[in-house]
């Protein structure tokens, strides 16, 4: 094996090391060849004296690894019993005084809007058969019907998003409450 073959085998055996380390190591071993050749030895002789590239790479990799004593043992997770009384009291009073009234208010508003929507739809449904018999008022009648339709769609969209975010908000609020109750602040 000549110098070039030795170095390339060493390089591939060092595989897992960083580019910087590999470059330095190849420089060190290359230096060995330089010295040896100057001392009158052949590349083949020197490659034999070095030992196989695989065993050299193995020694480098083992030398780089930290000795077992230096590897910090993972600290056992502290099972500290945290005092959650404060958090629990906070959860109770916050819910009683603010969250539940607020939640009920929003629920009532949504319910009200649903009722209003139903009322408008009912109005439109009763309006439609009446329009044809309106005579001179047929144009304002159609205009009114279209306006009502537009309002119905608008309210429906608002309701859709309102209910969606209301339920998402409720879910995450309950989750936050549970976490606070179990783990404290």
């Amino acid at each position: 094996m000549n110098r070039q073959e030795y170095l390339s085998e060493l390089e591939s055996s060092l595989g897992s090391m960083s580019y910087k380390d590999v470059k330095e190591i190849l420089g060190e071993i290359s230096g060995y060849f330089d010295e040896g050749i100057e001392a009158g030895k052949t590349e083949e002789e020197l490659a034999v004296k070095l030992g196989t590239p695989e065993s050299l790479a193995k020694a480098y990799i083992e030398g780089t690894a930290l000795p077992p004593a230096l590897i910090k043992k993972a600290e056992p997770k502290k099972e500290e019993k945290k005092d959650t009384t404060g958090a629990a009291l906070f959860v109770i009073f916050f819910n009683l005084l603010i969250a539940i009234p607020l939640w009920l208010t929003i629920l009532c508003v949504i319910f009200g809007v649903v009722l209003a929507e139903a009322g408008i739809i009912a109005g439109l449904v009763t309006l439609i058969p009446v329009i044809s018999g309106m005579g001179n008022f047929i144009l304002p009648g159609i205009f009114l019907a279209l306006t009502l339709l537009f309002v119905i769609i608008l309210v429906a969209v608002v309701l859709y998003f309102g209910i969606k975010y209301f339920s998402i908000g409720t879910k995450s609020y309950i989750k936050w409450n549970k976490k606070l109750w179990n783990e404290g602040f």
């Binding site: 060190e28 020197l46 004296k49 030992g51 020694a59 030398g63 780089t64």
Partner: peptide, 15 residues
């Protein structure tokens, strides 16, 4: 021993 042996040792000692 193989001449190569000292190089990883030197590197470790430097580290």
């Amino acid at each position: 021993l193989a001449d190569g042996t000292v190089y990883p040792i030197l590197r470790k000692l430097a580290t």
